[in-house]
């Protein structure tokens, strides 16, 4: 029969003193947000196939970077605003906030150029930043990352690069979940003053590192069991176009036409 020590048979009288473990709560919150975003990211319902989406976005960004006319930026901005309207309210806010922050930074950077008298054209840069960031945000809001990496492969990006990308994404989720659990457990057991905060966090990170090493070894073994020889060939896929794809293509063509009219034909 197990006998608990005497002190364990009494009720504990314990009054905690002050110590704010902000570092735990804060890192935990941050991590949770990232994980939630990733989980939602993976569960995207796509109306457009990823390959046309990706190629159109790349073309659009290229034209945005090259253009010299604010009219083109305005046209792209109107299109992006409509697409933004279709996002759920919360993601819309987060994306827009991120894009505006980037724009603010860009404005700060180009301000000296404006001051030195480089003309109004300098101000195109912040607008371009805003539109480019929104375009990328729209891309990742509308497509799950795994479908984007798949589209990358169809664009003949080397297989090993795709593999590294995919694996990284997977590990961010898996290890992130581990880290979140570890942090929560640490928080639950942080019932008083911790004199060795560094040691606690160090231990946590150490465990995480060991876990990731273990996971990668296991994955390598699992891949070898499934005849992995170091090659990472692309599976054959057929491109199927739907109505939305055609709409997207038409829009992109329209923008390209506008771009050419404005830039090439004076």
């Amino acid at each position: 029969m197990i006998k608990l020590p005497d002190w364990a048979c009494h009720d504990e009288t314990y009054t905690p003193d002050r110590d704010r473990d902000y570092y735990i709560t804060r890192s935990l919150l941050r991590l949770m947000l990232v994980l939630q975003a990733l989980r939602q990211q993976a569960g995207r319902q796509q109306r457009v196939s990823a390959l046309p989406g990706l190629s159109c976005t790349l073309l659009l960004i290229l034209s945005l970077v090259l253009t010299q006319h604010s009219a083109y930026l305005f046209a792209v901005g109107a299109g992006e605003a409509v697409l933004l309207c279709l996002l759920p309210a919360k993601t819309l806010r987060q994306n827009l906030a991120g894009a505006l922050l980037a724009t603010a930074f860009c404005t700060l950077i180009v301000l000296p150029a404006l001051w030195l008298g480089n003309g109004q054209r300098v101000l195109l840069l912040p607008a371009k930043t805003l539109l480019t960031v929104i375009a990328l945000n729209l891309l990742q809001e509308n497509f799950a990352w795994h479908s984007l990496t798949h589209a990358c492969r169809q664009l003949h990006v080397p297989g090993i690069a795709i593999f590294v990308l995919d694996t990284t994404l997977r590990y961010i989720v898996l290890l992130g979940e581990e880290a979140a659990q570890l942090l929560t457990a640490l928080k639950l057991r942080s019932v008083g003053h911790n004199p060795h905060k560094g040691r606690a966090i160090g231990g946590l990170l150490g465990v995480l590192l060991l876990r990731s090493q273990q996971m990668s070894l296991e994955m390598y073994d699992a891949m070898r069991c499934r005849c992995f020889t170091g090659d990472y060939p692309a599976p054959p896929t057929r491109l199927r176009l739907c109505r939305c794809d055609l709409l997207l293509a038409a829009l992109t063509l329209g923008y390209l036409y506008l771009f050419l009219r404005l830039e090439v034909l004076p």
Binding site: H69, S70, A71, F74, A75, G77, A78, G79, A81, V82, L84, C85, L87, A89, L92, R93, L96, L262
Partner: peptide
């Protein structure tokens, strides 16, 4: 919009304005 035909600029303005309002309230 400078550089665009008036009608097209008007449509783009309408799109942008309507979208901006929806975004603000969302």
């Amino acid at each position: 919009v400078a550089g665009l035909p008036d009608a097209f600029g008007y449509i783009l303005s309408a799109i942008l304005g309507a979208a901006l309002l929806i975004i603000v309230f969302k």
